[in-house]
Design a protein around this nucleic acid. Structure first.
Lengths: 326, 326
DNA sequence: CTGTTAGCGCGTTCAT
DNA sequence: ATGAACGCGCTAACAG
């Protein structure tokens, strides 16, 4: 190092001071600190990484950067990373298992120290496989090994909460807009819907359960379909907020008032859901906390520590799109 | 390298094959390729970076991850980076110049090959300063050097477009919700507002120009303030979509219909603006394209190439929150 | 306490 | 066309 020469010591001494690896006499330390300041020296992270085998970078896999769902989670990640010295590389799987695998390989090739997988489409086995290379934390899974950790929210309970709220308001014909096929979270929410109906002795009617894909447009299509096939219903439960937004718009176009004519409830509580017209009743997912906690856990896993964490539960947020049936 | 031994050649030969640096006989090449495949070898990026002085990483500075505004731009960045071998590290300045500088320093310390600065709060001089270390591309600036490039949208024109649309619909009392103080983009939009009024011989009335901060809550507060001070107006122009959302909600709460009673126009055309109730008339910013083009330009700058680019203009998107005054 | 030596995994001379 | 040797910047092990 140049600093070493300038301070008249050996490179190792500089290293020792920078890392606090060993005791160094005060005069030498002072000389080195001066030299460092004078040439405002900073260690080269690549050389450090090469030597230590740690890149101080973690990889985040989202499905769609520019979806409020993921971005709120990323916000939590960002917060948890602050001051740790770790940076994050974000990649997107675009809801596609093959692409997701390729992206994870990319992250691994880049030698990230760990991976956070958000709403992955790949199998648990794949995750376990990858976790042999680097620790992985994933949402929506119930795994727990030395190097892989899954967080799972009780989506079934969430779906149940939403529908029970509607039933308590007197609704009995409750339509449901599902998530994409084979999406675990979505399936569980639907299961919660079914259980709530059953507990209230309401027959399950597949004709008012319409498939969506978590996007706004599918919410619109769902409502249109319901009307085209002339279904009767007084409330709509959507598998996520985005499709609830679409449903809302379709209803508006048809001149149907929310909540006067039809009640609507979403799932997620995206930041924008407090500002829809009217503000959306929904099931709150602690997205920000999930991001924070997942990140913390990963950092622990990286250090070989065992983590045991719990995340806040899902909760019903009653706003203005639901009302008692008259 | 292990591969070299397995293939019975020297490490240099492997390197030559991987980088196409020099001619290598076909038989050796074959042997090496086999060995590589067999132990699915991949070069260590850190070692490469250390040697080449290129990290194959660029830094992105946003102000708020989890704002649809930035996320749509990031989407474009992501697209442009695809297949280039570059990855991105995203940091957030939180609309705070000091934090922004600290983050940029962090990126520089990490040896990113270039930086994209989105809606930065720091001065042009700071940018130029930083650009001495690494090439920088920034939005909202009119700079152009060998190592720094600014993109600037014609916000004044955008503001003018929005207000002229309102005026053409017969509105003459048009309230304006501004952006945060000292924000260049916001100031220009206000300037466009003033020019449109002037051209239509409408007196500028500061009492119906209310300060906001680009967030939903400030849009609500602005409308509330307007009503509290009993201003007369038939239309509202917001400096961005988010504050238009807030304005919309406040109007809804007061039982005022949009667009029947009051017309509303935003600025940005966020993805969600097609799904508000009713869908928002707004000025479209080509966020995605900005992300794409900024990234491409940066990649060129990194390679020492001169870039000359133009981005799509702002355009008025007429949806359903504006209507002719009766 | 401190300097010397070696090596992390590559790419690039310089010879051959 | 190919191998040997060196160095990117840093830290860990080994002496002293």
């Amino acid at each position: 190092m140049d600093v070493a020469r300038l301070a008249g010591v050996s490179p190792s001494t500089v290293s020792r001071i920078l890392n606090g690896t060993a005791k160094v006499s005060d005069d030498k330390r002072q000389a080195v600190m001066d030299a460092i300041a004078r040439m405002n020296f900073a260690p080269n992270p690549m050389a450090q990484s090469l030597k230590r085998g740690r890149s101080m970078t973690i990889g985040i896999v989202v499905q769609d950067i520019s979806s409020p769902f993921f971005d709120e989670t990323l916000h939590g990640v960002d917060e948890a990373l602050k001051g740790t010295g770790y940076a994050s590389v974000i990649v997107s799987g675009h809801w596609n298992a093959a692409e997701e695998i390729e992206r994870i390989r990319l992250l691994l090739a880049r030698k990230v120290d760990g991976i956070i997988l958000l709403s992955g489409r790949i199998t648990d086995e794949s995750v376990l496989q990858f976790s042999q290379h680097r620790p992985i934390v994933s949402t929506g899974r119930a795994i727990q090994t030395q190097r892989a950790l899954g967080f799972k929210l009780d989506n079934e309970h969430g779906g149940w909460l939403a529908v029970r709220h509607l039933i308590e308001l007197g609704h009995r014909r409750i339509a449901f807009i599902t998530g994409p096929a084979n999406n675990c979270d979505a399936d569980e929410r639907l299961a919660g819907y079914k259980r709530a109906l059953q507990e209230a002795d309401i027959a399950y009617d597949p004709k008012i359960v319409v498939e969506g894909d978590f996007h706004e447009s599918s919410g619109m299509r769902a409502i249109n379909h319901l009307f085209d096939t002339q279904q009767q219903f007084t409330a709509v439960c959507a598998a996520n907020d985005l499709s609830a937004y679409g449903a809302r718009l379709s209803l508006y176009r048809k001149g149907i008032r929310v909540p006067e004519d039809i009640s609507l409830v979403g799932f997620d509580d995206l930041p924008g859901s407090s500002y829809t017209t009217p503000p959306l009743t929904t099931i709150r997912q602690p997205l920000y906390d999930i991001g924070r906690i997942a990140t913390n856990s990963l950092l622990h896993l990286i250090n070989g520590e065992i983590v045991e964490t719990s995340i806040p539960p899902l909760e019903l947020i009653v706003r203005e799109t639901t009302r008692r049936i008259r």
